[in-house]
Simulated assay, not measured.
Amino acid sequence: MEVRQCRALNCHKLVELPHYYCDEHRELEAAYLQSRMKWSHSHDKQYAKRYDKTKRVATPIKREQHKFYKSKQWQDLRTVVLNKQHYLCQYCLTEGRVTQGNTIDHTIPINFDPTKKDDVNNLNVICPECHRLKTDWEYKHY
C-alpha cells in the first residue's frame, strides 16, 4: 500500500494513492486535480528540454549523473528504498514528524563521493522541504 500525506493545510493524515486528500477533505480533490491539469497544459516539453541542456547536463560530470538517474539500476534502487522506508521522510522522522516524501536523497552527495551513488545505506526518502534545506546546506559545506 502506497501512501502520501493529505494536502489539506495542517492535516497530517496519510491517504492511499492515487488520492491527494483524506476523507475529511476529499471535496478539495476535484479542484486540485483541475489546477494540476491546467498547469501541465500550460508548460510544454520545450521547457524541460531547455532546462536539461542548461542545468542538468551542462558539464560532463552532470551528464554522467543524469545518465545514472535515468538507468534501470537507479529506478530499482529507488523502488527498494521507497518501499523499505514506506515513503516517509527520514529527516522529519528524526524530529518526530511524519511527512510523506517521494524523492530519494544521497546522504553523502555523489558529487563528494561518487562511489556511494548506488549504496542503499547512503539513500533516504526525503520530503521537498527537507531536500531544499539539505541542498542549501550542502552548497555551503561541500
Rank of each mutant, 00 (worst) to 15 (best):
H86W: 02
N111S: 14
H19I: 01
K67E: 14
C92E: 10
T79A: 15
K116A: 00
L93T: 01
K13G: 10
V98S: 02
L33F: 01
N111L: 09
D119V: 11
P109H: 02
V80H: 06
E64K: 15
T94P: 01
Q34G: 02
K53S: 09
K70L: 15
Y51E: 01
Q75H: 11
L88V: 13
E24R: 07
V125A: 06
V98T: 15
I104P: 01
V80Y: 06
R63E: 14
K70P: 00
E29T: 05
L93Q: 13
C92H: 08
N124H: 07
Y21A: 06
I110T: 04
K84A: 13
K53A: 05
K55H: 15
R63T: 12
N124G: 01
D105M: 08
Y87W: 14
L17I: 09
L17R: 12
Y47C: 01
V80N: 02
N124S: 11
L28R: 13
K70G: 07
T94S: 15
W74G: 06
E95I: 02
R78H: 07
R36A: 07
Q34A: 14
H43T: 10
D52S: 13
Y51T: 06
Q75F: 07
N111Y: 10
Q75M: 14
A58R: 11
D76R: 13
Y87D: 10
A31Y: 02
L77A: 10
N111W: 11
R26D: 09
D52N: 11
Q100N: 12
R63G: 04
N83P: 04
A31C: 02
Q73E: 15
K62A: 15
Q73A: 15
R63N: 04
Y20P: 04
